[in-house]
Design a protein around this nucleic acid. Structure first.
Lengths: 138, 138
DNA sequence: TTGCTCCTCACGTCACGTGAGGTGGC
DNA sequence: TTGCTCCTCACGTCACGTGAGGTGGC
């Protein structure tokens, strides 16, 4: 069961990452396709895809591709209920770091939205070199 | 008036960018210090600093350092009320692009926050390798 | 005069993008 | 057999980080 596999193009489209990004994730040992076809095509399982989605989802927390494997491993062990005290502390550290970074991102996002709103407002003041007639070409 | 200038260290601290970033922005022609001391120290005016803050604020909209000068120029002309129709259209394009990107960022941020919340929840289930006694070494 | 701040190279890094040239699969 | 998809190099890019070696300013 669960022998359903998928080619890289389909996976890239589904998870919203580029082919190059998927290959890069494999190069650096973050997410590898579980198998290969006889011809050498990468074959991704649904499990692989879930891992890719989790990685993509966590990216705004700005973890490097190098530290994500440990985080994913800790998460798996947490789900399995097999965390040691030390691992629990490590995972808590990741969560704290992520939380703080996301808080910062939210602040910056709000500031950026405000700035763009002001830009749009500046656009609104239709003040093309004012001649006798207003704007609006009938 | 307004002859108040500031050294790069003070500016970096105020705007929350690194020294290297400020120098890089000057290298690529995005924001240059208006002056230099006799000894060659960069001297930033309050106007320079406002420009830096605007750049930093707009960064979540993912404009490249190369396209920001045009955007800032258009904004200045919008404020001055001297936009041509073509410039107004360009600026509107920037605003639309920015708006869409920020919308995406917000979506991703929310997804990331949820994922981190789930990670934290996984931490909560205190289930260290269950022997007869619970956790907590006295 | 002592530090702390600043300077200019210039190479390194991270996360991919972008062809170049070649093959697999329905 | 024709395309479309995939493959592996391998160099390029963007936005800086990180010393190395040297000087300015209160």
């Amino acid at each position: 069961m669960d022998s359903e596999t998928h080619h890289i193009g389909e996976v890239a489209a589904r998870v919203g990452l580029s082919l190059r990004t998927l290959r890069h994730y494999e190069e650096v040992g973050l997410v590898a396709a579980s198998g290969r076809s006889d011809g050498g095509f990468r074959l991704y399982t649904e499990e692989d895809i879930r891992r890719l989605i989790l990685v993509r989802t966590l990216r705004p927390a700005e973890f490097s591709l190098e530290e994500l494997p440990e985080l994913l491993q800790l998460r798996a062990r947490a789900d399995a209920g097999t965390l040691t005290d030390e691992e629990r502390a490590r995972l808590a550290g990741f969560v704290d770091t992520a939380t703080e970074r996301l808080r910062l991102q939210r602040e910056r996002l709000i500031a950026a939205e405000l700035a763009v709103d002001r830009l749009r407002a500046g656009l609104g003041s239709t003040r093309t070199p004012v001649t006798a007639d207003g704007p609006g070409h009938p």
